[in-house]
Write a protein that binds this DNA or RNA. Structure first.
Lengths: 342, 342
DNA sequence: TTGTATGCGTTATCAA
DNA sequence: TTGATAACGCATACAA
């Protein structure tokens, strides 16, 4: 009585009894209806309804060695950026009858085992990685045979995984180029952490654009942030204390741009008259800053969708090559940018 | 060969062979180590490592009729509000060895069946509801025996579920009362949709506070929004066109407050000199508006944690009474509020 | 077209 | 303390 759960679900045997056939026939009716006579099929289908039968997915998964569940490994769910990507994943997963399990990596200690366990025991059929590395030893990767994996947004070429993301370099180039076209010469860059591939490419793009001008590159115009609001504000302070402060700032994320703009306004600078800002991500809020932020659109939802599509491709048995799938990302011009005063 | 998956995982039998014992002993060593002699235990543990054995959780779940997985049903993952709650859920779930499956309700058509299937087939051990209603017929609720369910944030008394949320009425009362204390008399309220319980209670709180003053309540000061930025901005326009525009506005969500403040600034009003604003939720960004928003702190993460704790309680076999668990929510005073000019 | 029998990997019951 | 064995619910190879 004790460990007995509330469990009176109808099983296949019940259906078989009700329909007066064998369980094999029931199973067949459910799996390959065409292999059973119309007559019995109807009998079985009626019986299914009568007894209120639902297939026991756990048993089914176990038997068929697939769970119809995929794992999304995400660095931080509460980051709206990631939750948008997950949203896209969820969307196509649900459409194809897959469930998505969320694995948050913030508390990394014991998670590692949990994840690998999940994989080895076939509790998941595949996974999509939102962060830039696997949550377990790559060495074990070869030992155990992993299920299909795709990366969404982040990329790590050394893992040789199918990856969907945007062309960060080009996007950053375009953003910077836009400022140059407007006549800005002193353009600064509030960059992300050095170790993040995204930051590297965005910085490359910025540099490439700057080097094409006569002005060239000024190292002091490159300040690192950590993607946070605060770091954006701090970075701007640093930039404004320069002997020749910039007239425009390209920020590697909208959040840092928000921080920087906030700081600028606190220092009673007029945006965009005194200083222009370009962000990166096109977060919801970018429309609602004052002035509205010019930024790079980052198709987060689409990234999630494509990644899941790529995963499904493999789940359906088709092979998929490693490497990048690039999604478009346009510059969205709003009111935070303007030609410099002089 | 065809349906053969990449599958060379070690099973319990392999361990048994390697250790020279029976599978029963292996199982016992894993489940109840104390019931096996030290000698054999060591043998088995060594064998486990040697053959690289990991328990097949699918089989285990199937046999034990529990999946160590819970389902979080959420109206919209990409809403930062919900993702914070999920974060809390995830946190304690992971700590207790549970996985969390995400069910987004946006595409409701087929989801209903998917969810109920998940439940009936015991693929999940319990669920936490972030929205205000079950994603399937409540009538079927009684037919099928549902696993434990708890509600997080939203509440629906008719479902008779354990629920964790904040005391919206008191919080709204406090917010309004704070404005009154500052000397405001013309205090408006930008409310949420009528059908949302949250909005109802928040409106009650506002009314209660207003009725305690000599001023009383003015229906024209209550404007409905839909929680969106736009609706906040629109609402403010409406309020400012009144013959006696308010000197302070209590908004049912930060987002609407952002919209309203944005609109106010566009109309060249000074905040808080010309008009004060109080929000509700304490979103990350509330710190970074100009001026920073005075708002009610909504312990989203904590709500998730408590809800999961409550669920675990039931999962562990302890019964839990239906009804509300109230979490604290304080008013956080920042710079968007000030005594009225006259 | 249908039924019988077997096995998936584990846990639990019963004897030994 | 340990081992044989049945059972969980389903899918399939094989026989009828």
């Amino acid at each position: 009585m004790e460990s007995k759960k509330h469990n009176n679900t109808a099983t296949m045997k019940d259906v078989a009894n009700a329909a007066g056939v064998s369980t094999a026939t029931v199973s067949r009716t459910l799996m390959n209806p065409e292999k059973v006579s119309l007559q019995t099929r109807q009998k079985v289908e009626q019986a299914v309804l009568d007894v209120g039968y639902y297939p026991h997915n756990l048993a089914r998964s176990y038997k068929r060695n697939e769970s119809k569940t995929i794992l999304a490994i995400v660095p931080d769910i509460s980051d709206p950026f990631f939750s948008d990507v997950i949203c896209g994943i969820e969307e196509v997963a649900a459409h194809e009858g897959y469930f998505v399990l969320i694995g948050d990596c913030k508390h990394q200690q014991k998670q590692e085992n949990a994840f690998i366990n999940l994989i080895i025991t076939k509790q998941i059929d595949g996974m999509v990685l939102l962060g830039s590395n696997l949550p377990f030893d790559v060495s074990t990767e070869e030992q155990k045979n992993l299920p299909p994996i795709v990366m969404a947004n982040e990329f790590a070429p050394e893992l040789k995984l199918p990856t969907v993301h945007i062309d960060n370099l080009t996007a950053a180039f375009n953003a910077t180029h836009y400022l140059l076209k407007q006549g800005h010469k002193r353009i600064a860059c509030i960059a992300g952490p050095e170790e993040m591939p995204h930051s590297q490419y965005r910085l490359e793009g910025y540099k490439k654009a700057m080097l094409r001008t006569g002005e060239g590159l000024k190292e002091s115009y490159i300040v690192r942030g950590d993607f946070s609001h605060e770091s954006g504000a701090e970075a701007l302070k640093t930039l404004l204390s320069l002997p020749e402060p910039p007239t425009a700032v390209f920020c590697h994320t909208d959040i840092m741009a928000f921080g920087a703009m906030w700081q600028a306004k606190k220092m009673v600078l007029k945006i965009p008259d005194d200083i222009s800002f370009v962000g990166f991500d096109n977060l919801e809020q970018a429309k609602y800053t004052l002035p509205a932020l010019t930024t790079i659109n980052h198709p987060r939802r689409e990234i999630g969708r494509h990644a899941m599509l790529l995963l499904l491709e493999q789940l359906h048995g088709n092979s998929v090559t490693a490497g990048s799938r690039l999604l478009d990302s346009d510059l969205i011009v709003r009111e935070s940018t303007k030609a410099p005063k002089c």
